[in-house]
Nucleic acid binder design. Structure first.
Length: 89
DNA sequence: CAAACTATTCAGC
DNA sequence: GCTGAATAGTTTG
């Protein structure tokens, strides 16, 4: 666990339900706008990916990027959260 | 400490 | 739209 990773987790955990942010955005919020790749690697190496909404983090091009359970699952999860948010609102 | 790796991003064609 | 190159931090030896 590193200070940067901690920040990244915090930022990612602050992403609203059903919303998605880019690695760049997360890196920016983490304080290292140029560490987008490091962020992705941290998320992939993160000890508890299920404690972190890493599925809400995607590429700046709109690409899903990657996910521990698979990109397809990531998409499904995002859609699910979108539906949940719709119900909550 | 140094080298290698990475779920990315930007620029050029 | 696709390919190539660059950047910064993490991890491992």
């Amino acid at each position: 666990m590193t200070p940067f990773a901690k920040k990244v987790y915090k930022v990612v955990s602050n992403i609203p339900l059903g919303e998605v942010r880019t690695y760049k955005w997360v890196a920016l919020k983490a304080g290292k706008p140029k560490a987008v790749r490091a962020v992705g690697q941290i998320l992939k190496n993160n000890p508890y990916p299920w404690f972190i909404p890493c599925h809400r983090v995607i590429c700046a091009s709109g690409d899903l990027g990657g996910y521990v359970f698979g990109k397809k699952k990531k998409k499904a999860l995002l859609d699910l959260e979108k539906q949940i948010r719709k119900v909550m609102v």
